[in-house]
Design a protein around this nucleic acid. Structure first.
Lengths: 340, 340
DNA sequence: TATTGTCACGCAAACGGTTGCGGGAACGAT
DNA sequence: ATCGTTCCCGCAACCGTTTGCGTGACAATA
């Protein structure tokens, strides 16, 4: 396991130069002559020199590592964002360390702290659902750049990247209206969730714009938006006297639960009740009928998050940036709302 | 962004001790009296001291980072392994940096090298399909501990962790035989793949043990095992004169493709043709009929991989370990083979 | 010739923590 | 009184790289 390290000193000795000259040559410092620079670089190359990352970080207080925290790494959409993050970080010369909070607020703040201690240059976080107390997160802000993505919170003064939930939801509802639906239910989250609220307001706005009555009886809020809850709420919606003719679940998994119970009761989709979800998860083309949903360009979100984070990291100014970036999601129309 | 660092020196000054004493106190060195140790630890705690990771790594040549390389981060099974890896690494005090090779051999070796340069303490790798030339990987072995998981290769002399593919496949086939199937097709990979071969040999052994004729016409090999290939091969299997009465796809996605085309041709599952997959992906309960498949305990694999890796990292001896660890997978019987 | 400027490079300190070695104090044994 | 031990602790070197400052050589300018 012992390895003869190739260091600046060694190169300097061979070339009869000082380590500082070698260092500067490798970093293209203008003080060093072209000839020397070339000579040094060639030897370094041939000796397979790699700078000692610790010594470097030690001196420069830079790790070239960014930390990423996500609630649940097994969600398909999350992995697409991670893919974007990894790719963009790689081209920018950053490494990525990932942690999973399991939607546990305590774990989340613990991870934030661990990452800070560890010396990451910046943090990308997708918050847990119930992140109500911001007090644990605020201290981070003036120690290391932080950017929120996907699951964000407007209470935290930092730049945030999401998809245009409101507009996307608006489009989804408008689509339902266009195919003739007049009584559209929504299944959303009860606990305050930034994205849920955004999608809900898109829903409301679309109904208003089209002069459709808003009925609270078909506005369903659940604690955790999941497949099982989708099934339960579909059961509930079927039991009320004036049944909806369309259901918008703000999550694909809930939408799939809805579809499964509608099928159990032999309800025609989309003729009797149309269903639309949100995420374009990989499940949405496996379920039958295939699910109409909003595609979220995860890779794009990930890439953008990294781009803005590195911008902050490498910026010399110390001001807290506070941009809101929205990435456009696209409605994908499939069999659950439209039969050819 | 500037932050007053709390260093050993500062603590030493306050307590009128030397930095070495403080350092030793914090590391429970026996040379330091209990009283001093306690005093130092208390102050360090109250001052919120965190050791500078770079200085530490610089001295000790230890980063407490392990690198993980996977072919595709968006596969559900992969994420479950990652979850196990992250969890186990966290409790052991290690950070994890993740890279995605996208099944690109060049990228894979590049990543291995990058990670090494970066100073990871060890590497966990799940290989790309076509990793034929081991030459790029072998040099890694005597520089940093390497462990393969899931997608392994017996050509590389290092410890490897998989599920017991052969036995699991054997059980799956035996199950098909037990429900009365006598002509069982398999869809496997053409390119040499360790897991595919293992599953195939489990298939062969089960057939032999039950005196069932092996017919090469229903042993299908494909380049890339995918949903689309599943569809194609199902079409092919339906076209031959002696149709199979069961299809074992060595991958859930292929199995789902099979189910979709069988349904298209109104073939009863499982009465006419039963289907079993492998992975217990999240799709397997969305598809209808629900898919019988082998559950792979991803978290367990991940945790074990980390455990063995850290063992190697922290071992003083330099011998290359070369264990083969098999984690047991469980057959999960669902509607695609068994109707209640 | 004297002064100033530029170029190309070396010296040495600094980053924060670890560790081999050495040394003083206290104490018991001789 | 001397010696040997043991217990605690400090000194200083060291890890590899970066960087402010200094310097000698040489050319340009006055």
């Amino acid at each position: 396991m012992k390895k003869e390290l190739v260091t600046l000193k060694k190169i300097a000795q061979i070339l009869d130069l000082s380590t500082s000259t070698v260092s500067r040559a490798l970093n293209d410092h203008p003080d060093i002559s072209e000839a020397t620079t070339k000579k040094v670089k060639q030897l370094a190359q041939s000796m397979n020199y790699v700078p000692n990352i610790f010594a470097k970080g030690f001196r420069k207080h830079r790790s070239n590592i960014i930390g990423v925290i996500v609630p649940n790494i097994t969600h398909y959409f999350t992995t697409t964002m991670l893919r974007g993050i990894l790719e963009e970080a790689a081209v920018k010369g950053y490494r990525v360390i990932i942690s999973e909070s399991n939607n546990d607020v305590l774990k989340q703040t613990e991870m934030l702290n661990t990452m800070m201690q560890f010396g990451v240059d910046g943090i990308l976080a997708s918050l847990t659902k119930m992140t109500r107390d911001i007090d644990n997160i605020l201290p981070i802000l003036n120690k290391v750049p932080l950017i929120l993505f996907d699951k964000v919170s407007n209470k935290i003064p930092c730049t945030q990247i999401t998809i245009n939930d409101e507009e996307a939801a608006y489009n989804a509802i408008e689509h339902l209206i266009n195919i003739g639906k007049k009584r559209i239910a929504i299944i959303k989250e009860r606990e305050f969730s930034y994205t849920s609220e955004k999608r809900f307001s898109g829903y409301l706005k679309a109904l208003k714009d089209h002069d459709i009555e808003i009925d609270e009886k078909i506005i369903i809020s659940v604690d955790d938006i999941s497949l099982i809850q989708g099934k339960r709420m579909a059961n509930h919606l079927l039991s009320i006297k004036k049944r909806p003719d369309a259901i918008f679940a703000i999550t694909d998994s809930a939408a799939i639960g809805v579809i499964q119970t509608l099928k159990k009761f032999n309800i025609n989709i989309p003729e009797d009740i149309a269903v639309v979800g949100f995420s374009n998860s990989s499940h949405s083309t496996i379920i039958e009928p295939k699910l109409t949903t909003v595609d979220q360009p995860g890779e794009k979100i990930g890439k953008n998050a990294v781009k803005y984070l590195i911008e902050e990291i490498e910026s010399t100014t110390d001001i807290l940036t506070n941009k809101m970036i929205e990435i456009k999601g696209n409605l994908i129309i499939r069999d659950s709302t439209f039969k050819v």
